[in-house]
Amino acid sequence: MEDQAEVGTQPISLTVRAGVATITIDRPAKKNAITAAMWSALIDAVAQVDAMADARLLVLRGAGADFSAGADIAEFETVRRDAETARSYEALNARAFAAFRNAQVPTLAVIRGACLGGGFGLAISCDLRLAAPDARFSIPAAKLGLAYPADGIRHIVWAAGPQLARYLVHSGQQISAAQALDTGLLLEIIEDEALDTRVEALAASIAATAPLTNRATKQAINALLSDNPAMMREAERLGDMTFDSEDYAEGRRAFREKRKPVFTGR
């Protein structure tokens, strides 16, 4: 059964099925360009998923032919018109990216068509990325005359590596799904007609694993990338908790009984 969650009045939808939450950017007529209000709705949607005890994976996707063409430039005359308004707008962007990056469960971006600018930022904030062959990626800041904040650049370097990050931000040029795969930006490219089936299979596989383990290891990876001692200590604490959990006892029991474990997150 699929449950539909309420996410305000913005074109952002949240559904949950068998422990897999899916957030959809649902503005296909505008290539899923994201307004300021939609950035806030994305943050709220992730918070709802974080509060779900039975959530095991969060999938992010765009409706229709595109993942997202990024921030809605039509708003920039008001919400990003100068340094002062840009700081507020970029703080909102950063909160949205951080929401996905720090979500309590693993996150998976499913990418078709345009994945540009802020859409690119959302995709690289997810732990895993699958794409159709027509996916294309770019960071057009240099073509607009604006600069991304240093924190945003850091995450581009994490995901793309320094050489590709430099190319993307300096040239503003697009790269193909094949190029993104070659650089490690993508996990896989799947033919469009098979992409949803692959997503469902991967989601089911992740949803069947131990959620406490996934939470601890996700925290550890983020701590390593951030070079953040406090985050590493938290990762160690979460890791220690797994050894006292019911899920660890279930994992050992299932191994002895030669069956698949059934994890509850406790």
Rank of each mutant, 00 (worst) to 15 (best):
L146E: 13
L57C: 07
C115V: 05
C115G: 03
V110Q: 03
A69F: 02
Q4D: 11
F243M: 10
R80N: 13
S171Y: 05
I111Y: 08
M241L: 14
S88Y: 11
R233N: 12
F100I: 02
T217R: 04
T24I: 00
L122N: 10
A249L: 11
L181P: 08
F67V: 00
M52F: 02
A210M: 15
G145I: 06
L128K: 05
G145M: 04
G152V: 10
V49P: 09
W39D: 15
R17N: 13
L60H: 06
V110F: 00
E188P: 01
E250R: 11
R129S: 02
A74F: 01
K143V: 00
M1P: 14
P106D: 11
D82C: 06
D196T: 10
G251M: 15
D196G: 03
D196H: 03
A98V: 02
E193F: 00
G251W: 14
S88Q: 14
I153D: 02
W39K: 02
V157C: 01
E257A: 14
G265S: 06
G251Q: 13
Q163A: 09
L238E: 12
E84D: 15
A96K: 00
M232A: 12
R27C: 03
L122R: 01
A142K: 06
A114S: 13
R80Y: 15
L144K: 04
L130P: 14
E77Q: 11
G119P: 04
A254C: 07
V157D: 10
I73V: 14
D247E: 15
V105C: 08
A86C: 06
G119L: 05
A36F: 00
W158T: 10
G184H: 03
E188M: 07
A33P: 04
L108H: 02
E236M: 04
Y89V: 00
S13C: 07
F263W: 13
E250Q: 15
E2Q: 14
S138Y: 01
E191D: 15
D240M: 05
I25L: 15
D72E: 15
T183H: 12
I190N: 08
F76V: 08
L60W: 06
A37R: 13
D82Y: 08
P106K: 01
M241A: 15
V262S: 10
L238D: 11
P133Y: 03
R259E: 11
V262T: 12
L168S: 02
L185T: 07
H155K: 02
T78A: 11
N228D: 15
A74N: 10
F100V: 01
V169S: 01
L14A: 10
Q219F: 00
G119R: 04
R233F: 02
E84W: 08
A208G: 05
G145P: 10
A147C: 06
F76N: 13
L116A: 01
A147W: 13
G152M: 10
Q173E: 14
Y89E: 09
A53T: 13
A249Y: 03
L195Q: 11
V169C: 00
G113D: 09
V7L: 01
S125E: 09
F97I: 01
A223Q: 01
R237V: 08
G239Q: 11
T242L: 05
A65D: 12
E2F: 03
K218Q: 12
A21F: 07
A147V: 06
E6F: 10
P261G: 05
S68A: 02
F137Q: 03
R101S: 04
E200M: 05
Q163R: 09
R112E: 15
